[in-house]
């Protein structure tokens, strides 16, 4: 009997002795069980050309310069590579301001020198990936834009409509951050041009962008993306002698380098446009080594709160 009391006494004592660890164990019970959001799936609002699931946070403004030089033309037969300084002599570019209205909604305006195009965009986070109890395995964003081509009409005598200048994009951006290192992206896209060049071309283009991002270090990510079009892949060229396709799928490979408020995205791509209408549906640059262009996106974030 005494033994039993002694045992109970010791049990009670050891209960007190382990108190700190017990308290530690209790902590997890105390904290409210909410799934924690997954952050930094990608470094920037763009992977390379494609939009990522990231948006500007509320009251943060992104000033973005997107720049693509001309094809490098590095090949044996072509002497123009060095003559054009591997494409650095010419460039296409877009300047944009993109603003976080809320943490989930980003709106932006931009202008690119391809077709003197103004674009108005919005991106909304529908689902956000999270961890913990009742977590969400994926992030899903909806992206849409409207672009206005403002080049002069080639034939001013014809009846030209303003609506002919317009083109539209709808896109779902499905992403998942698998771990600290790897994030993947799938972007089903619909592009509509009110007016296209030839009868053989389709006004509607469907495409599925695929992308991957690998974290190399705390400040550097490696990105790759490819955007195959699903329809209208072999439109004949206007010239009857050519049987080559008029437009090509866009590919890109690049690095994100982040330094505080700036993100520098350096890349090689065959895409000669900065908005989806141009680089998904109407990219005129072939996908081969000689046609790759050097390009960069430069993003500077300003905090307008406080």
């Amino acid at each position: 009997m005494k033994k039993l009391i002694l045992f109970l006494f010791i049990a009670a004592q050891s209960f007190v002795a382990a108190a700190q660890d017990d308290l530690m164990n209790m902590l997890d019970g105390e904290s409210t069980e909410k799934p924690t959001p997954v952050y930094a799936t990608f470094k920037s609002t763009r992977l390379v050309n494609l939009h990522s699931n990231e948006t500007m946070k509320a009251k943060h403004l992104d000033f973005r310069i997107q720049h693509r030089f001309q094809p490098m033309e590095i090949n044996k037969d072509n002497v123009y590579g060095l003559y054009n300084m591997f494409g650095l002599d010419g460039a296409v570019m877009r300047l944009g301001f993109e603003y976080g209205v809320t943490d989930n909604l980003m709106v932006g305006v931009g202008r690119s020198n391809v077709g003197k195009t103004y674009d108005f965009m919005g991106k909304y986070k529908i689902l956000k990936q999270s961890k913990g109890k009742n977590s969400m395995p994926l992030s899903v964003d909806y992206f849409a834009n409207t672009a206005i081509n403002t080049t002069e009409w080639t034939d001013k005598t014809r009846k030209n409509l303003f609506t002919s200048r317009l083109s539209f994009v709808h896109q779902l951006i499905i992403t998942r951050k698998f771990n600290d290192k790897i994030s993947l992206m799938l972007s089903p896209t619909f592009v509509h041009h009110n007016l296209v060049k030839t009868k053989a071309q389709s006004n509607d283009i469907y495409a599925v962008g695929v992308g991957a991002s690998i974290k190399l270090s705390r400040s550097v990510r490696f990105n790759v993306e490819y955007i195959p079009r699903l329809n209208n892949r072999n439109e004949p060229k206007q010239s009857p002698t050519s049987n080559k396709a008029l437009y090509y799928d866009a590919f890109a490979i690049g690095l994100d380098i982040e330094t505080g408020g700036h993100v520098f995205q350096l890349h090689f791509t065959n895409a000669g446009g900065l908005i989806e209408q141009q680089f998904i549906a109407q990219n005129t640059t072939k996908l081969d080594f000689a046609s790759l262009r050097f390009g960069f996106n430069l993003s500077r974030t300003f905090t307008l709160e406080k």
Binding site: V16, A19, Q20, L23, M24, L27, S31, T36, P37, Y39, A40, K57, A58, H60, D103, R218, S219, E258, G260, G261, T301, T303, E305, K306
Partner: peptide, 27 residues
């Protein structure tokens, strides 16, 4: 016993600058 424990989730820290918040957690 005077034993005391504290715990805080790093992701629960709120920064006025959200980019800093992301870097705080990520980097």
């Amino acid at each position: 016993t005077g034993d005391v424990v504290f715990q805080v989730a790093n992701t629960s820290f709120d920064f006025p600058n959200k980019l800093m918040q992301e870097h705080f957690n990520e980097k």
